[in-house]
Design a protein around this nucleic acid. Structure first.
Lengths: 298, 298
DNA sequence: CTGCATCTATAACCTGGTGGAATGGATGTC
DNA sequence: GACATCCATTCCACCAGGTTATAGATGCAG
């Protein structure tokens, strides 16, 4: 008997949500499609997995059993997938580097160039991750190394080397009264609405709201965005302002958005991270060396 | 990224056979279908898994990686499947009992009847297994208990209680010269062609050929069959003769086939088997008790 | 050199499974 | 009694996947 792991994911979604309708939107299919998927799984197994009722879908005994084992199947597959893809990158001499938008700056380009010199024949593949992915894919094995702002969620399970730090500036709508100033004190921004990262990014969100440098003053959130484009739009459209690394002034310049230095707020730090499994991977270590050489020239 | 476990099985077949053509017949699809399956897997992963050549299919580095992990995925799924189905039988109060054709006799019916009395509300489901399945599905968790001839392959990993033994008779075509006799000495059968079980059944096949009770005399195999029906046909059509338990004379009577007692060959033994995991399963243990009570009345 | 065997890849065709939109039916809720 | 909220069903369009037949590459034997 075979299954598509997709059916297992759907099954787990329904099991967790207790409802076809809610699970359907979670896995991005229509509700009738999910109805059929579940029915298909049940007939393939020859086992009734849910009790249907007006209230929703409740797991049966055997259903609970499956719900307990299915995650192991998915984990085994995800692991196989990651390993295989990593081996493929190795074989085709591709180093995949993840980064969060905020870590982008001139150094990135220089690092890539330095690595290209040190490892001729190798290609670097830069992958920008959404802010909801705090390790930029490193935790899931999607990338071999990552350039990130420190600290980030899940940092403990990874290797991290800090590279350099950078002042935090503020991004404002061009029409904002404070945009007229050359320099802005952070306390003058306390009452401004901020464009923030999603709730689930935790410490990262707080870092860019400088939540712990407001002397207890509450944060006003004017908009929540997940990507640089949304973020810039939100600012340009006046939903709020936001702290940003100084280099954003160069890398995320856009009409309607201006950047100004801020005093009274600590700088931010960029680091390079890799998985412990690659501690002895010469290619990854070469990349790390390139990062360190540029950040702390001998 | 999702997969159908079917693709993984196909992939492993190709990896092991090193050839699409051979793997295709092993998994019972056409060779073009396998070509497409492998290609599909490769494009889904975005990874080249095989080097193609006139000689066949050779795993790439990433392919080897996948070949090492895929079995874990399949094992996890098979485990989930078994557990879920077992839970379902428990919930619907069904005890599934596997048996090999040779173990069928009056006792089976009595055992089932006794179990029905001891566990009202429970239903017994008898499942006949092919001879190529020496534990009648017990090893794979398809059944909760099994009635088998001893010894059988894989017996060490299971619990077994011997029940009773029975003389071995011989099944002959009605027209066979020896059919005229009332009793036949086994040595008179040494040169006869036998209808045998498939090669892969190992000790089981040898047991019914009485291979080690021929004083070194070689076995002649006239036909190979996997199921009782084929077996009876082969005998009736004169492809050969075969040893069988005495009870087969009653349970597998058929025009054109006669059964006669045989001297000079040891008896055969029936046992009940269950999985160690069910050592404390009261229902399975009740069934075992029923078997023992009938086989060794107090 | 030629025919044959043995690989995989491709083409053409057919079927059935799968998803989406709309709708039905049952059942609580205000 | 209108409404909201579930899941089930219907209808339709589409593509994935299978099969057979065949092509193309290459080694081998006579």
């Amino acid at each position: 008997m075979d299954v598509d792991t997709r059916l297992l994911r759907s099954f787990l979604a329904v099991a967790e949500e207790g409802s076809l309708t809610r699970a359907a939107e979670r896995v991005f299919v229509s509700q009738p499609a999910l109805t059929k998927q579940i029915r298909q799984l049940e007939t393939q197994l020859g086992v009734r997995l849910f009790e249907r009722s007006r209230a929703g879908m409740a797991l049966t005994g055997p259903g609970r059993e499956l719900a307990r084992r299915a995650p192991k199947v998915l984990a085994a597959w995800d692991d196989a997938l990651r390993t295989t893809r990593a081996a493929d990158r190795q074989a085709s001499r591709v180093l995949r580097v993840g980064f969060l938008a905020s870590a982008a700056n001139e150094a990135t380009q220089e690092i890539v160039a330095a690595f290209a010199r040190r490892r001729p024949g190798w290609r670097t593949e830069l992958r920008q991750a959404a802010w909801t992915n705090p390790s930029a894919g490193l935790a899931t094995g999607d990338v071999d190394a990552a350039l990130l702002r420190l600290p980030f969620q899940g940092q403990e399970a990874l290797r991290v080397e800090p590279l350099f730090s950078e002042p935090r500036w503020v991004a404002l709508p061009a029409a904002h009264p404070l945009a007229a100033r050359d320099t802005i004190a952070f306390r003058d921004l306390w009452d401004e609405p901020f464009v923030a990262a999603p709730q689930e990014t935790g410490a990262w969100r707080d870092h860019w709201l400088a939540a712990d440098e407001r002397e207890g003053h509450p944060v006003r959130v004017g908009a929540v965005t997940e990507q640089p484009d949304d973020w810039l739009n939100a600012i340009a459209n006046g939903y709020g302002i936001a702290l940003a690394p100084q280099s954003a002034a160069r890398f995320y310049a856009r009409p309607g958005v201006v950047y100004r230095p801020v005093t009274g707020v600590s700088p931010t730090q960029v680091g390079v991270a890799w998985a412990p499994a690659d501690d002895r991977n010469p290619v990854v270590q070469d990349f790390v060396r390139c990062c360190l050489d540029l950040a702390r020239p001998a």
